[in-house]
Amino acid sequence: MLIRNSSIFIVFFFFFWGCSTPKYITESSANLAVSQNILPDSAVVYWLKPYKDSVELKMSKVISKTSNDLLNIRYKGKIDQSRSQEANIARVCADFMHQTAQSWASNNPLTKVDLTISNYGGFRVSLFSGNITLGQVYELSPFDNEIVLVQLNGLQMDSLLNQIAQKGGCPIANAQITLGADRWLKATINGNAFDSRRNYWVATNDFMQQGGDGFTALKYPQKKIQTGILVREALINGFSREFEETGDINPRNEDRFIFTENQ
């Protein structure tokens, strides 16, 4: 009996040793949609209510309106002729940052902003046609990053333009750049061809200026001025002003980057 039991023990030891890896069940594993057909849990609704009420009180104010979808699309250097027809939110936001930076600089005789750049990660959602609320601008620009102005010499500008090329572009205002693979080929800034003998004032956000997102060319500028204005404030002002002045947020159909065939 003893012998028999131990032999069974051994047989089963090996049998279950083989089975010791967990078996993954494909058929009943899935990514399930959290859809509106699911009944909301009332306890969670109750718990969330005071937070929700407070957020709505602060954030539901309509500050602007757009008839165009302002899409958050990153082109990553792909050649796509249709892209210039779209009201890309990156262009809208870069313009608003540029306007704010320029008006700040107009009160400071030492500066004149030549171009404005941001990072794609700085503008995070699409805004679809309809009202634009304060809360949506917080979603678009959730970070408390401020606008900084940096003065770069020709060499530093050259590295910056190359870093932009390596990224396949970025939100940009007041400039048009032709990009090759990993480097810039042609740049027009403020309507004039890039001149490597002069200095340029670049407006950007403090995250990028400190080398964030790999834009190290901004890290050690000739001069640097912190405006104290949050990027988000510039967007809030921009969205409300453009709607007040024109009744809409207008598409920016012009190409700011030209991608060459060897891209």
Partner: peptide
């Protein structure tokens, strides 16, 4: 236009 009415912790909890 992509995720209208989708998501939400009350539904997730259910």
């Amino acid at each position: 236009k992509t995720w209208g009415n989708k998501g939400g912790i009350s539904q997730l909890k259910t």
